[in-house]
Design a protein around this nucleic acid. Sequence first.
DNA 1: TTGAAAGCGCTAACAA
DNA 2: TTGTTAGCGCTTTCAA
Lengths: 350, 350
Amino acid sequence: MDEPRSAAAGTAPTLEDVARVAGVSRATVSRVVNRTRNVDPAIQETVRQAVAAVGYVPNGAARSLITRRSGSVALVASGAGEGQEEEFRTRFFTDPFFSRVVNGVMGFLRPRGMHPVLMLAETEEARAEVIAYLRQRSADGALVVSTHADDPLPEQLVAAGLPAVLFARPARPVPIGFVDLAHQEGARLAADRLVGQGCRRVAVISGPLDIRAARERQDGFLEAMARHGEPLVPTAEGNFTQASGEAAMQRLLLERPDLDGVFAANDLMAQGALHILREHGRRVPEDVRVVGFDDSSAAVASRPALTTVRQPVEEMAAEMARLLLDRIEGRADGPRSAVFDPVLVVRQSG
Amino acid sequence: MDEPRSAAAGTAPTLEDVARVAGVSRATVSRVVNRTRNVDPAIQETVRQAVAAVGYVPNGAARSLITRRSGSVALVASGAGEGQEEEFRTRFFTDPFFSRVVNGVMGFLRPRGMHPVLMLAETEEARAEVIAYLRQRSADGALVVSTHADDPLPEQLVAAGLPAVLFARPARPVPIGFVDLAHQEGARLAADRLVGQGCRRVAVISGPLDIRAARERQDGFLEAMARHGEPLVPTAEGNFTQASGEAAMQRLLLERPDLDGVFAANDLMAQGALHILREHGRRVPEDVRVVGFDDSSAAVASRPALTTVRQPVEEMAAEMARLLLDRIEGRADGPRSAVFDPVLVVRQSG
DNA sequence: TTGAAAGCGCTAACAA
DNA sequence: TTGTTAGCGCTTTCAA
């Protein structure tokens, strides 16, 4: 099998080269390469052979200079801007949540020949870079995973007229698409489960209350408990890390040593709660039932495995990508959104 | 504060527009934007103001058409090609290892204005796509995280003359740069620790032995144990997942119910071992000591926290990126590599 | 130090 | 159905 000589050679072959070899014009080669109709099958074959012979690969820059498409989308991890860059990165990447988003996004993008470019936007400078990146058309749009309610990035994107879709509804009403979960509904599922299993003295480990999802999970849970005739439910705030879940559980145990049920606003914190409960000699689920949230890898990794409220992150991420492409390719008129329903996944802990 | 009118308008402003406003030529604007020397400070200022006034952002495609640089690198998750796409993705993304690589890569790339594009290469088709992506200059080079010894991608990259650096030394000697860990040395650290703590009946949970790193960790451990006068060490093979660690621990316990030490080739499997040991009423570290490998987030997440061999993944990933940029920017002559030293991190489990 | 002009490689009207 | 031609927006000689 002949190796195309040009592969390792100095200059990459261009359309021109293929055209010369095939004995046709550049335009025809372009049509064949881009699968445009209206090309004589015989010529098509000739061109394909010429392409193979010279080892031609279209130049992406030249192509997107004219199509105004880069073939990639920015996948942005956006934060509030208070933290250190490295700490933010580590926190973000350590959480299984982010991996699931990446997974779901790639699943959708890949068959469509598009690729995600990872970006961080936790400082004003970084946000400006993201905006500039999009404005210079290095990416066709942005998928934004935002961690704070007062993140200014969504509004900046809208102001710049850039295609973007968020994971989680924006804090202030902004004309931008998003995917989200019915968090309150999910929390209600957890409350119903705990009560249904006979728990009467339950407590909540919430996420950071400046994150909308965290607040909705807490509110939904408290509301459901109130409906069950339990208006007084102690709460402790964590920050979605396992360590914060441990600390919160400690506080809760001090406040209410006789508790028999815990709802944690994510699995990582639930896992932390499990550790502390065991240290204090509480058996799960016999003495205390624990329900988590997310159904992340942490849910099956812990012992006992977590009963948890499933957030279909991969599907949501895929939908987010779909909404963005619809927008980019002009299929969508205004910003569109999708809200997913949570499901209770019963395992051992609750 | 005036908003640049063109931001949300139909067409983005070009160099031409800036030049007109500033009353200079395109070339001069280009020089100012690209910080080239030899521009009159006064003119420089005028140009900057014009840039701000029209809200100019250079067009990336036009720029890279001529510079032949895209400003991004492919971050490739490469597999052997036997598995299902989705399973591969999920496995890969669930492992904290990948997140750490991304984290380290971004830490290095970001200050240099470069961005990672995520790609998968687990089938021949996907590999071809990666190669094409690089050949069409959509990325300036590739960072490859390979999971199997017989992965053909490294050789394909070399054959195509594309800049690339691997995480982990290639199976067959190929002229390509890589970063790696002294795995055998790390395993020796684990063996010394277990023996030093008085363990006499130890066992190994290895990774998939078709992965070089897994084999080296096992070999290094067995060799060290032999030196300690323990030539017979039972082993069980896992696949680096927690579930496989559990299964392996079950088998080991059956084979050697009186074991008092376990070395697992990664933390996830060690975590699985911990679960099984507890189920069987073995206390860790009192009855059985457990040492993991990696020092990933799983190491601090488990109870007891894992004593483990630290692999500085973030640093290694950053170095991988550095080696690639050196190559891309022509600072490196041939392929260069770096091998890192592991360190024992003592926590509770061993 | 600045400007004029020539392309980088490609796609898309428009003609033939 | 095919070819011709005109740029896309930028960088970079080469002259001035």
